[in-house]
């Protein structure tokens, strides 16, 4: 398990997301890229998104604003949102 705040760079965040998608959502690792859309390419629905947010909170110790998460479309968007969150940037 990744410890809290272990993930700070975009690369680490992406690696963490790949691991979570593979382990918790049974998604094939090769399907996951920054451009992959959560809904269409990876078949992550609103229920999964909630699980993902819980997982993110456990790993970063910070709670992602659901409103920010609603605007997320691709894996790259998630990486950016988490990056802003862990580095205390205002959410875009």
């Amino acid at each position: 398990m990744t410890q809290i705040s272990d993930i700070t760079t975009k690369e680490e965040i992406f690696a963490y997301l790949v691991r979570t998608f593979v382990e918790e959502f049974e998604i094939e690792a090769h399907a996951i890229s920054l451009e992959a859309t959560l809904n269409d390419d990876l078949d992550i629905d609103s229920i999964d998104a909630v699980d993902l947010m819980v997982s993110l909170k456990n790993h970063t110790g910070k709670k992602l604003d659901p409103e920010v998460f609603k605007k997320v479309r691709t894996v790259g968007d998630v990486v950016d949102a988490v990056f802003d969150l862990v580095n205390d940037q205002p959410s875009r």
């Binding site: 918790e24 959502f25 049974e26 999964d48 699980d51």
Partner: peptide, 8 residues
């Protein structure tokens, strides 16, 4: 087990 796995 994780929700994601069970629901799948």
């Amino acid at each position: 087990e994780s929700n994601g796995k069970t629901t799948r």
